[in-house]
Simulated scan of single mutants.
Amino acid sequence: MASASMRDGKTGIIIGPAGSKRTRTVTTKLGNVTVSAQKPSAALVKDNVKRSSQALERAAARIVRGGVAIPQRKNVPLYSVDEDNPKIVIRKLNGQVSRGQLVDGKFQEFA
C-alpha cells in the first residue's frame, strides 16, 4: 500500500503491490481521502455475491423475527405501549393487565 499526494494537495491511498502496473483501478472518495484499488475480476465479484447471498440466507430467519423475548417473573412488572395509542402504557404484573400512564416515573393506573 502506498500513500501519494494528489494534485489538489489532499492525500490519496493506493491499495496494491508497490510499483505494480495497474491497468484497471477503482477510485473512491471518502471525505478528503481518495482511495484507489485494483478492480476485482468478474469471477471474484461473482464468488463474493454468491457467498454474501448464502450468509444472508443463514441470517434471514433471525432478521425477520422481531422483538426481544423477556421472561415474565413474579412481582416484576412488564411495561409496553399500546399499539393504537402510544400515550397509554400497559403493565403486566402477576397475570393481571392494567392500562395507565407514567407520571413522574411511576405507573398510574386508569380508574
Rank of each mutant, 00 (worst) to 15 (best):
V68M: 10
R91Q: 12
G95L: 01
I70D: 07
R73T: 10
A18Y: 10
A111C: 02
K74E: 15
N94A: 12
A59Q: 13
R24C: 00
D82L: 14
L78I: 13
Y79M: 04
G66D: 07
K29F: 05
I70A: 11
N85G: 10
A42W: 01
I90R: 06
D47H: 01
F110L: 02
A111Q: 15
T23K: 04
S53G: 09
S80D: 13
I13K: 04
I90Q: 11
L93P: 03
G100K: 02
T27E: 04
A37F: 09
F110V: 01
E83S: 13
N48C: 08
E109M: 09
P40S: 02
L30E: 13
A111F: 13
K39C: 11
E83A: 13
N32L: 10
K106G: 05
V81F: 07
M1K: 09
V64D: 04
A59K: 15
V64C: 12
K74M: 13
R7C: 13
P86S: 13
D8I: 06
K29S: 12
T34A: 05
S20L: 02
N48Y: 10
Q54I: 07
K106P: 06
P77C: 03
F107Q: 05
V103A: 10
S41L: 06
I63Q: 12
S53E: 12
G16D: 02
V33E: 11
D84R: 15
A111H: 10
D84N: 15
V103I: 15
T23C: 00
I63G: 04
R24Y: 04
S36A: 15
G105L: 00
D82Y: 07
T27R: 00
V68N: 07
S3M: 13
V97N: 05
Q38Y: 01
P77M: 03
T23V: 06
M1L: 12
Q38M: 04
V68Q: 08
R7H: 08
G66C: 02
G67A: 09
P71Q: 00
Q38P: 07
G105Q: 00
Y79P: 10
K21P: 04
T34W: 05
I70R: 09
K50C: 12
N75P: 06
I70L: 14
R22A: 03
A43K: 05
V68S: 08
A111D: 10
V33F: 07
A43G: 11
G105E: 01
I14F: 14
Q96D: 11
K50L: 12
G66A: 04
V35I: 15
R65C: 01
D82K: 09
N85M: 14
R99D: 11
G31Q: 01
K74L: 12
D104P: 03
R24K: 06
R65P: 00
P17R: 02
R51L: 15
P17I: 00
N94W: 10
A4F: 07
V81M: 12
A59W: 11
D82T: 06
A42D: 03
M1E: 11
G100R: 00
I90C: 09
L93E: 08
R73W: 11
S36V: 08
P77K: 09
T34Q: 10
V26S: 07
M6W: 03
I90S: 07
L44Y: 00
E109I: 06
T25G: 00
A43T: 04
E83K: 12
L102C: 03
I15G: 03
Q54W: 10
S52L: 13
